[in-house]
């Protein structure tokens, strides 16, 4: 049984990490990062079967691919706090000569990263490839991936979505961060995507929703349900409803903080709403 309180405490610390990383370098993407803090903590602390250390091949463990690479602050924070690299290194986010590039990359050798992402729409394809290799290797572990909702406007996703169902990629759980926002406004205003659950279903996927993607118990329950549906000749899609900027009142429910850093005053207010739990880096 997961200790929800402990996980929630980590989520608050991850929020602080996100805000402090972005503030220090005055750039980066806090909105989507904050919205996905519960998901990342649940995934890395509870869901994934992970080995100690890091190997690129990841044989005998679950793997995760981040497709919407711009939410690197939450990815880096959770990777560091899950033991992949020293938490102090979060200080180098987006700085010159850092392993913590603006968007995640394998190029600088940061443990925990298996593919570069940032140019959108490529993660599901990579995840499917890794899932096919797991099958060839008779490696009975799962592939997880996260995409933004706006990202689904990229056509490559639908090539991948079609392939996965046709080829029964059932060791794959694709989560869509449904925060309804993208750079130019709400997804409804920029390019409405209609009924996403219906679209995934029509493509032959097993779809489930997590209505409150910022509630740790709900996220865990939903991801466990998703995991239970793997191995049934069908890829699994989780529609994770989140609030962009969650946990910081002035950043919530708007696309304004997609790619903008808080100033000193705003940081102070944001951190006051999220008191230190495990200790800042």
């Amino acid at each position: 049984m997961a200790d929800i309180k402990k996980l929630e405490a980590l989520v608050v610390q991850v929020r602080r990490d996100i805000l402090r990383q972005v503030h220090r370098v005055n750039s980066g993407h806090p909105g989507g990062s904050l919205g996905c803090a519960e998901f990342f903590v649940a995934l890395y602390q509870e869901m994934m079967a992970r080995k100690d250390g890091f190997s690129m091949d990841g044989i005998g463990e679950d793997l995760f691919f981040l497709s919407n690479g711009h939410i690197s602050p939450v990815f880096y924070s959770v990777l560091a706090r899950s033991g992949y690299f020293p938490v102090d290194e979060l200080n180098t986010f987006r700085h010159i000569n850092s392993r913590l590039q603006g968007h995640p990359t394998t190029h600088e050798g940061l443990p925990g990263i298996r593919v570069a992402s940032g140019s959108l729409g490529q993660g599901i394809s990579v995840a499917i490839g890794a899932a096919e290799t797991k099958k060839l290797n008779n490696d009975n572990h799962l592939i997880y991936t996260l995409c933004g909702d706006g990202e689904l406007q990229e056509g490559q996703n639908w090539e991948a979505i079609m392939y996965a169902a046709a080829n029964q990629i059932d060791n794959l759980i694709v989560t869509i961060d449904l925060n309804g926002q993208q750079i130019d406004g709400s997804t409804e205003n920029v390019l409405p995507m209609g009924n996403l659950a219906g679209k995934f279903s029509a493509f032959g996927w097993d779809v489930l929703s997590i209505e409150n993607g910022n509630d740790m118990a709900a996220v865990l329950e939903g991801l466990k349900e998703a995991k239970s549906r793997t191995g049934n000749k069908t890829p699994v899609c989780v529609l994770l409803h989140t609030v962009m900027g969650n946990g910081v009142d002035f950043m919530m429910h708007t696309h304004a903080w997609h790619g903008k850093a808080p100033n000193d005053e705003q940081l102070e207010s944001a951190l006051a709403q999220n008191p230190e739990t495990l200790g800042d880096y």
Binding site: R114, V126, T133
Partner: peptide, 14 residues
């Protein structure tokens, strides 16, 4: 496009 992405992913695991 999906083919290239899949190929990249397939290298993970040898």
């Amino acid at each position: 496009a999906n083919m290239m992405g899949m190929a990249a992913g397939m290298t993970i695991g040898g």
